[in-house]
């Protein structure tokens, strides 16, 4: 890779606003905050599992964005750059706190244990429409399951399945390869699936 290669400018719904702020309209920074405050707060809550840590992260993220916005090169969507900063702060924060122990999730631990001949009907929760499944208790349980994932899996499943970034964007935000994103995502999803299975079948 050549260091002086000129990358194409990426324009998105934030470009005009970011350019205006960088041109001196600092008063418009609050508009940027308004656009992302809620999303970042919820991202932080899910990543940290703690609303105070989430608040600290949001504050630190916007301070960094304000400080370094002039460095933004429009080589990615602004939102992706923002989440890169936020993710990095979350990861540093989590190192200091008491959360899920870091461990590797292996594929083997999620392989179905049942013999095909003893399997009954398709699990009922796979067949029910979402609106019949979703309730506050289930959301809370799923959120707790996400928080209990080891960090490197948690961040990937949140970025991909909650925040809905693509595989390529997630890889860019985390500065890891796309194949690594796919492996972590699959294991994180299998972990959450096991937790939901336990919840629906045994109430745990």
């Amino acid at each position: 890779m050549t260091s002086n290669r000129k990358r194409k400018k990426i324009e998105d719904s934030d470009t005009e606003l970011v350019e205006a702020i960088n041109a001196g309209r600092h008063d418009l920074f609050q508009e940027l905050v308004k656009r992302y405050e809620n999303k970042l707060y919820n991202f932080g809550s899910r990543m940290c599992g703690d609303t105070r840590d989430a608040e600290d992260m949001v504050q630190e993220t916007f301070l960094n964005v304000f400080k370094y916005l002039k460095d933004f090169r429009y080589e990615t969507k602004f939102k992706n750059w923002l989440y890169r900063i936020a993710t990095s702060i979350c990861i540093k924060k989590r190192r200091k706190s008491k959360f899920a122990p870091e461990r590797e999730l292996s594929l083997e631990e999620f392989l179905p244990k049942e013999d095909a001949s003893t399997l009954g009907e398709m699990p009922y929760w796979a067949q029910l429409p979402l609106e019949k499944l979703l309730n506050e208790e289930l959301s809370k349980m799923l959120q707790e399951a996400i928080t209990s994932l080891p960090k490197k899996y948690r961040v990937v499943v949140i970025l991909r399945d909650v925040e809905r970034f693509s595989t390529a964007e997630t890889a860019q935000i985390l500065n890891i390869g796309e194949s690594n994103v796919k492996v972590r995502l699959h294991r994180a999803r299998l972990y959450l699936r096991d937790r939901l299975k336990g919840y629906f079948e045994h109430g745990v």
């Binding site: 979402l130 699936r193 939901l196």
Partner: peptide
């Protein structure tokens, strides 16, 4: 099937 439902539930949080 259950993995698909898990993903849909995450997307609906």
């Amino acid at each position: 099937a259950t993995l698909k439902k898990t993903i849909k539930l995450c997307k609906q949080l």
